[in-house]
């Protein structure tokens, strides 16, 4: 019987956290891969849509109307990323598990902004900026991050005649 107790103890101490970690990794990486596939596909569709970060409009843009457009995404960590980042936090260094997460957030926010602009009939966006904010605490003690918001915004413009001065 005492052999069983030992095994149960071992399972509770190492097996269970490992199992949860693996399940979290499995779901997390599946969702991440799917998201990246969707991002690449939609970026390819928007390839001819100019999104630039100039803060003044290029001289040769002849514009008939303009508006501010925004795109934002709120994205959360999975348990696997959180645990591995926690271990990284003990010794320092690049938090490699967070990098693809924020990459997804940036590109998704830009995509949503561009899609919004195109839906409203605009031809391009300039003065594009990215903002990020920590959304909320995952725990009551004020520690832990529930998620981050990535916000992309810029000035969408409709050309009177496309690239009038250069063509």
């Amino acid at each position: 019987m005492e052999g069983n107790i030992e095994q149960i103890n071992l399972f509770l101490n190492f097996g269970l956290p490992f199992l949860i970690l693996m399940i979290a990794y499995f779901f997390g990486s599946y969702i991440e891969k799917r998201h990246f596939r969707s991002i690449r596909k939609r970026e390819a569709e928007l390839l001819d849509f100019p999104v630039v970060s100039f803060d003044t409009m290029p001289d040769d843009w002849n514009v008939s109307r303009s508006d501010m457009v925004t795109g934002s995404i709120v994205i959360s960590l999975d348990y696997f990323k959180r645990v591995i980042a926690g271990l990284r936090g003990l010794i320092g260094g690049r938090i490699k598990t967070y990098e693809p997460l924020l990459e997804r957030a940036r590109r998704e926010a830009l995509l949503r902004m561009s899609e919004e602009a195109r839906t409203q009939g605009y031809d391009a966006i300039f003065n594009v900026r990215l903002e990020t904010s920590r959304l909320a605490n995952a725990r009551r003690d004020g520690k832990g991050v529930a998620g981050v918001e990535m916000l992309a915004f810029g000035t969408a413009v409709k050309f009177a005649s496309r690239f009038a001065n250069s063509e």
């Binding site: 970690l21 990794y25 990486s29 696997f80 990323k81 645990v83 591995i84 271990l87 990284r88 010794i91 690049r94 490699k96 598990t97 990098e99 693809p100 924020l102 990459e103 940036r106």
Partner: peptide
């Protein structure tokens, strides 16, 4: 902006 290291390699190295 994204490291090449596979997340599982990163995880096992750290653990």
């Amino acid at each position: 902006n994204v490291s090449d290291t596979h997340p599982l390699v990163e995880a096992s190295t750290l653990i």
